[in-house]
Amino acid sequence: MNVLFGSPALHALVLGVGIVSALLGVTSYFIWFERKFAGRMQSRIGPKHVGPYGLLQPIADAFKLLIKADITPDTADRALFNLAPLLAVCVALLSLAVLPLASGLVIADLDVGVLFFLAAGALTVVPTWMAGWGSNNKYALLGGMRAIAQSVAYGVPLVLAALVPVILSGSMKLSDIVAAQAGGHWFALWPPGPGLGAGVLFVLASLAEGNRIPFDIPEAESELVSGISTEYTGMKFGMFYLGEYVHSLVVAALFVTLFLGGYDGPGPDVLALQLLWFVLKVSLVSVLLLWVRWSYVRLRSDQLMTLCWKYLLPSGLLLVAASAVWVWWTEQGGSR
C-alpha cells in the first residue's frame, strides 16, 4: 500500500480521524437500528418520539450522557476508576489500524496485522478489570473476575481461528489475506470445512471476548445489577457502552476481512465499489450478530467454560491441522 498523505504519521492522522469519526457516527446509528430491530423482534416499535422514526434518538442520548452528573464512589480507587472508561474506547478502536477498507485504504498495513488485532483484542480485558477492581463494589468485582476468566479462555480459540486464514494465505498481513481471496475464493467457502468452521469459531470467540450476548455473564443484569459498569454514571458509563458496540462492529469487519474476502466483490476494482462491498458485507454480518443476540439466552458460567475448553479448543486445533494438511496437499499436487 502507499502512504496517501506525505509522511506515515500524517497519513495515519488524516485517515485515523476520518475513519474513527465515521465509525462513531455509524455506531450511534447502529445502536438506533438495534433498538428498532429488537423492538420489532419483540412485537414493539422501538424508539419513535425523537425525530421521524426516532432518528434523532442517538443524538439526544449522546447529549443526555454528556450532561449527566459524574459520581465517583468514596471507596473507589480513583485513578483506576477514572482511567478505565478512557482505555475501554481506546482499546476497542485499536484494531481499526490494520483493517483494510479498500485496496490501499488502510491506516497501517503491518506485516503482523493478525497478531496486532489479536493483541488489541486481548487488551480489552485490562480496562474491564480496572473498572471491576477500581469500583470497590461487589457486583463490579464479580463481573470483572468473570470477564477475565472468559476473555482469557476464549482468547485461545480466537487465536486458533485467526490462524486458519494465515495458514491458507501464508501471510499475517491483512491486505495479503484479502488479496489471497480475490475473485470470490473466500476462505469461508473454500477449502470446504476448515474455512467456514474457523469463521464460526472466530465469531463465537470474539463475541465472548467482547462480553456480548449470549456470552455476557460479566454484565448479567439479572444477577450482577450491571456488572463492571454498576458504579459508572454519565459519559463514563457511555464509554463502556460505546466500546462494546465499536468492538462488535470491528469484529464483524475482521470476520469479513479474514473469511468473506474483505472488499472483494464482482465489478471493476475501483475504490468506491470496493468500499461499497465492504460496507455491505459488514452490515450483513452485523445484522446476523444482532439476530443472534436477540434470539438466544445467556449461557451460565460453567456452560461457558465447558463450551470453550471442551469443544471450541479441540475443534480449533483440528481446524488448524486440517488447513495445514490442505495447504500441503494442494501445493504437492501443483508441483507433481
Binding site: 502512504v3 509522511s7 506515515p8 504519521a9 497519513h11 495515519a12 492522522l13 485517515l15 485515523g16 480521524v17 474513527v20 462513531l24 478512557l86 482505555l87 474506547v89 481506546c90 478502536l93 485499536l94 481499526l96 489500524a97 490494520v98 491506516i107 497501517a108 498495513d109 503491518l110 506485516d111 496486532f116 464509554m239
Partner: peptide
Amino acid sequence: AWIAAGTFTGVAFVIA
C-alpha cells in the same frame, strides 16, 4: 507502518 500504527493509537486516545 509502525509509525502509522503508533500515530493512530495516539488519535484513538485523544478522541476518547
